[in-house]
Amino acid sequence: MKIKVLGSGCAKCQQLERTTKEVVKELAIDATVEDVRDIKKIMEYPILATPGLVINEKLIVSGRVPSKAEITTFITTAMTKE
């Protein structure tokens, strides 16, 4: 599974990066978490507000930091689809 966190380095973006990495670690799954900070790369997704969470190239959340429970749900849902 490929997970990307889109954010230009603002406080909320860093928060999302941290929480996502924690979730991946706790679930002990085979997933890569990439921090995308280059604005040109960020704009490859239909995003209007950072931070954004991308799972398997699909933008799941943008403009807010989801809770840990929510991120866990996103990731497990995406896993069942794989």
């Binding site: 380095g9 603002c10 406080a11 931070p51 807010r64 930091v65 809770s67 749900t73």
Partner: peptide
């Protein structure tokens, strides 16, 4: 200058489940 990108952000977390 608290943030690395000094901007004011408020993007509320929606806590589901609580």
């Amino acid at each position: 200058k608290k943030n690395t990108e000094s901007c004011d952000c408020s993007s509320p977390v929606i806590a589901t489940g609580s």
